[in-house]
Design a protein around this nucleic acid. Structure first.
Lengths: 326, 326
DNA sequence: CTGAAAGCGCTAACAA
DNA sequence: TTGTTAGCGCTTTCAG
């Protein structure tokens, strides 16, 4: 691979001039410019980002932290992130933490090492203490999961309200025993969605029954399957279920199809693309995932430029499908 | 962020010594070593990858090209890639081409620019001519989709054989009108799976009917939905369907559930995690996706080290579930 | 409009 | 065992 020196020699100019052509500096005569461009063509030259970045101390790389790439919820957000980043001449370094703390350190170091200019974290399991430390020196944006009262800017949806509306929908349909399938309450979204669930029940004078609330160990389909099996053991079975993610809801739906003698309404959360392929199709809360990704990148780039950014709460929408039309 | 000079000054040694400590060179006295380590602690120093990489002309970053992150097939492979890469002190730069040629160029340049040490391509839509050009100068591994008779090493499965076995399974079940939902035949995997489909039919003396072969424009659920709708228009409806991906098969299943008056058996390809959540659960060809990712990285790292690597064809398996038990 | 030269942070060859 | 120093490829003053 040719370097800038060779181009300079070939074009009979100095490296400074080549650099100027590369960076579209206007103080280059068109004759010189074309000589240089010709040399670039001939030697198939592409400037080394390493050299450039070292000099500019920027990498134009953004780190995206997420617990697992397999969850379709993240895929959609990443689509938005990726497109917006590229449009702004940035690239994405995708970092799966697998919820393992040792992984985090590697990634935090990459930022400290200037290998990335900023971070978007979508990982609810992240060590917020360390992240806040990092934030003192580097731009960070939280996407979806955030820290209440924290100082790192975020883009998210109103989980409490969305959950409230979802459960209210179930209540209006005549359900009085509504189960909640949720994950560990160390996660903010889980606490918020539970709060919304309880608010709806209380508003309609329905009791909050602990035996109808199941905490899963993860967000895979299988966790939803297991949760629903347990809930079906109850003497007084639920007539409806609200799950804090579509993946859990889909697992629940599967069990209901196979094992329940009575119909049970189900509402999920996220509106992943699978959710319209299930049988019955899944009623769910649609999060603007793609948009959330776009906003996160825009906020991060602003932060990198030194512009202060405001938190953003995006609109959600309850998508009513067959799983609540029974 | 402190740099190596400041550590040297603080520890009262030269930058070379600091570098030696950083790189675990053994020619450092333990006294000096601890002085340096102390300074590193105090100043919270982390070496700049940019400086290091520029000097070593390596980035320890690997590029992964894929058409779309939303397809669960890729997520699983990426899990394998990610884990193996990290175990070898490499990181992954995930690049979604969205099947857009202009995107490719950006990524190819990143490699030329030394921003990445090698490439794993899983993108069937990639410009093979350009990729082969790049291969002259940089390590590349093809994962899943490859080039027949090409020179770039690959890891894949035997698509033709797998398809043959899948269709044979349908025939043994008594099906004589078996439809094929496949994608564009510019993709090798599509041609191979079609070949397997035809071989099975021919072996059992069944005709290959063009009107039972549907070519989709993509691999989304919706493409499967559309394909199945068209196939159901046939006067002589198929009694079984083989789809070249689970996503297509799941779309087809949805239509069969909703619109078909007669049962139709379905076989997919990939064994994505959602395939056991459908109703009925999906019979499919299981590809060792995680393993494929691991192998791809191992091969790539070998290539980077200058070791010649052999192509790998991994084992597949037909997973029989409810969609062929009707 | 163009060139010379310094320097970004690091490693490694060479000296001591 | 340690220090000095020359670059890796680039951008950006400062001169001209």
């Amino acid at each position: 691979m040719a370097n800038i020196q060779q181009i300079a020699k070939r074009a009979g100019v100095s490296v400074a001039t080549v650099s100027r052509v590369l960076n579209n500096s206007n103080s280059v005569s068109s004759k010189t410019r074309s000589k240089v461009e010709e040399a670039i063509q001939e030697l198939k030259y592409a400037p080394s980002m390493l050299g450039r970045n070292l000099r500019n101390s920027e990498s134009r790389l953004l780190l995206v932290l997420l617990p697992s790439i397999s969850n379709p919820f993240y895929s959609e957000i990443i689509n938005g992130i990726q497109n917006t980043a590229i449009a702004n001449d940035y690239h994405i370094l995708l970092c799966e933490t697998d919820s393992k703390p040792e992984r985090e350190n590697i990634y935090f170091n990459m930022v400290k090492n200037k290998l990335a200019d900023g971070v978007i974290s979508m990982d609810p399991t992240i060590n917020m203490k360390k992240l806040n430390e990092l934030y003192e020196e580097h731009p960070i944006i939280l996407c979806s999961e955030y820290e209440e009262g924290g100082c790192i800017p975020y883009v998210t949806v109103d989980s409490e309200l969305a959950a409230y509306q979802a459960v209210k929908h179930l209540i209006k349909l005549g359900n009085e025993r509504i189960a909640l399938i949720t994950s560990d309450e160390k996660f903010l979204y889980a606490r918020q969605r539970r709060a919304g669930y309880e608010r709806a029940l209380e508003e309609f004078g329905l009791p909050v029954r602990e035996n109808l609330i199941y905490h899963t160990k993860g967000l895979d389909f299988q966790n939803g399957v297991h949760a629903m099996r347990v809930l079906l053991q109850e003497d007084n079975k639920p007539t409806a279920v609200f799950a804090v993610s579509d993946t859990l809801a889909i697992g629940a739906l599967k069990v209901i199809n196979m094992e329940s003698t009575t119909p049970i309404a189900v509402v999920g959360f996220d509106n992943i693309s699978f959710s319209s392929m299930t049988n019955p199709t899944l009623t769910t809360v649609s999060q603007p995932m793609y948009n959330m990704g776009c906003h996160a990148v825009e906020m991060l780039i602003s932060s990198i430029k030194g512009v202060k950014v405001e938190n953003i709460v995006l609109e959600h929408e309850l998508i009513i499908r067959e799983s609540t039309m029974i």
